[in-house]
């Protein structure tokens, strides 16, 4: 037996290969194949997310020529100009107002729809599909439809007003109404997605909670306040975040409905960036606006992570 073992000792080692293998492992981890699987994502993220992010920050410190290329380093001048330009201040103000108009309304309506659609009824699937339908309609299609609805002469809205003997409104051309009209379109557009997520959240709530509440004789609104909303809070948080980010990023509706007008009243931030960058080809100043937008969105997301995470633990 001793001999057998000695033999093993001799044949077993192959020290050179073992050492090389160990080195490989040290550098690449146990399964270097992982990098192969990650490669496509990594390359694409590098080229289309990380590089451009830093490039944007870089560009924001430069003046740019007519082709949009950086020419002179000017430090924070773009930012200084941005914050002292009345257009940007107005644009930022409109964007905040727009968030305020759209986010709470979308979520409250979607929540009501989701609560109704969560009832166990025959054919409820049909209603769920209808309520979520706007998710399947593109920004472009819905904007064009609403353009038609808002049309001062042929549109249905003014028709209805005239039925009641009211004067027609110039929905998209009146500075007092334009942002409201764009908001209305946006709320309608986002209802589908928000509804779908909230309904999913409602359906994830354990049935037993309601059963025991029913046995104790708790009423509908009591259950809503004490069970449904607390249990739904992680979903609500998620939806609030996503809606806010969506609102910040609004572009299509503006491009099709108002082109930022009238009098810049609907020139939301992304649309103004678009104009700066791709109409005026001023990449430098557009980039500085992008950086500001980026930090706003980062802030919203960070808040979601901070508060959202904690709420999730309730589940």
């Amino acid at each position: 037996m001793a001999m057998e073992r000695a033999q093993v000792e001799r044949t077993g080692g192959l020290p050179a290969t073992v050492a090389r293998e160990k080195l490989f492992r040290r550098i690449l981890g146990r399964q270097p194949a992982a990098w192969l699987y990650l490669m496509p994502s990594l390359i694409l993220f590098a080229v289309f997310v990380f590089y451009p992010l830093f490039k944007t920050i870089y560009l924001s410190f430069f003046l740019s020529d007519m082709k949009g290329l950086p020419t002179v380093f000017i430090g924070l001048d773009n930012y200084v100009r941005l914050f002292s330009s009345p257009e940007f201040i107005q644009s930022a103000g409109s964007t905040l107002l727009f968030v305020l108009y759209t986010v709470p309304a979308t979520i409250i309506i979607a929540l009501i729809l989701a609560l109704l659609a969560n009832e166990k009824l025959k054919g409820i699937g049909f209603f769920r599909t209808i309520f979520s339908s706007s998710m399947g309609i593109s920004v472009a299609a819905s904007s064009v439809v609403w353009l038609f609805i808002f049309n001062p002469s042929a549109g249905i809205l003014n028709r209805i007003l005239s039925l009641f003997g009211l004067r027609g409104i110039n929905w998209l051309a009146d500075p007092n109404w334009a942002l409201f009209s764009v908001s209305l379109t946006t709320i309608w557009l986002h209802l589908g997605f928000t509804f779908l997520i909230l309904l999913g959240g409602l359906q994830n709530i354990d049935e037993h909670l309601y059963e025991s509440a029913n046995i104790e004789g708790a009423g509908y609104f009591y259950q809503l306040r004490r069970i449904t909303l607390p249990m739904l809070s992680p979903t609500l948080f998620f939806v609030i975040t996503v809606s806010m980010i969506d609102a910040f990023q609004t572009f299509g509706q503006i491009d099709l409905l108002t082109k930022g007008g009238p009098g810049n009243s609907t020139n939301l931030i992304v649309y103004s960036i678009y104009q700066k960058a791709f109409i005026n080809f001023d990449f430098g100043s557009a980039s500085s606006a992008v950086v500001v937008l980026f930090f706003c969105i980062l802030l919203v997301t960070a808040l979601q992570f901070k508060f959202g995470e904690r709420k999730v633990h309730y589940q």
Binding site: E4, V8, T11, G12, V18, E21
Partner: peptide, 12 residues
């Protein structure tokens, strides 16, 4: 330590 399978070293 060592693992032998069928008398042959099998650690790796």
């Amino acid at each position: 330590g060592k693992l032998l399978i069928g008398g042959q070293p099998a650690n790796t």
